[in-house]
């Protein structure tokens, strides 16, 4: 398994898209952080960039990568290795190269310009989002029959979590505003990894005015520390559950 991870990494670290992704992240980070003297604001802008781009780029790149590797996967599977090992190795190689791109592209500028716990949490948020959406991409890959459909589903999933989910949440909050729905809202947020990421980061920045309804709820009900732990655990679930399902489905998939 280590061998496969190593060679997938070797391949992906020389991938042009990953290089360009790293450079764009780095340029964005440096320019955003230099725009304002207030580092908190810079971090917030970077957070928005992360929440907007990381999910969609990760899920698209990963889905396409998994589909393009079908023949390579077959070749590996014709060797005496377990199916689970092959698919997990491909996931780990894929997710860690994208995570590395984020860590370098955003992490390095942060380290030099705004080092501190908040910056660390932002990098953690980006890395977790990368792992989550790679995991979802794997699930899409094992569930869908062909590449075109897979990419379509990946796009829909990414747009659902970045745009549609919040719209539905707001509709929900407005229509039930007469009832005590605070806890329900927290529960619903757990179903969107991007919201979890936003809340996690905003809890660190302590800019309550910018936290919005959901962030304020987290603070009120869970407090900063518990809220952070809650959102991190939920995000870890978002990595593990799709991954576990993918491996199970892949065991019986026809190639």
């Amino acid at each position: 398994m280590k061998t496969i991870i190593k060679y997938v990494l070797l391949d992906l670290l020389r991938n042009k898209i990953i290089l360009v992704y790293t450079i764009i992240l780095a340029v964005l980070s440096i320019s955003v952080l230099n725009l304002d003297s207030n580092p908190s604001k810079g971090l917030l802008s970077l957070l928005n960039v992360t929440l907007l781009f990381v999910p969609i780029i990760t899920i698209l790149f990963a889905t396409i990568y998994f589909f393009n590797s079908i023949e390579f996967t077959e070749l590996l599977l014709s060797q005496p290795i377990k199916r689970q090992k092959v698919i997990l190795a491909e996931y780990i190689g894929m997710a860690s190269s994208l995570a590395a791109a984020y860590a370098v592209g955003v992490g390095l500028p942060l380290l030099f310009l705004v080092s501190g716990t908040e910056s660390l949490i932002l990098v953690l948020t980006g890395v977790l989002l990368t792992l989550i959406f790679s995991s979802l991409a794997l699930l899409i890959f094992v569930k869908s029959k062909d590449k075109t459909r897979g990419i379509g589903i990946a796009l829909v999933v990414a747009l659902f979590f970045t745009l549609l989910f919040d719209g539905l949440l707001i509709a929900f909050i407005y229509s039930f505003s007469d009832y005590p729905i605070d806890q329900a809202v927290i529960a619903i947020i757990a179903f969107n990894p991007i919201d979890l990421a936003r809340v996690l980061m905003l809890l660190q920045l302590d800019t309550s005015a910018l936290m919005g309804y959901s962030g304020a709820l987290f603070k009120k009900f869970l407090g900063s520390a518990t809220g952070s732990i809650f959102s991190i655990s939920c995000m870890v679930f978002w990595v593990v559950v799709p991954l576990f399902l993918s491996v199970r489905i892949f065991r019986k998939k026809d190639l």
Partner: peptide
Amino acid sequence: DWAYRSKIGYMPQIGRYPDNMTIEQ
């Protein structure tokens, strides 16, 4: 039992490999 595959040499119809790997790798 997956171990039986050590006895088989398979040449697929379409060979596609990771783009940036060399033949040697």
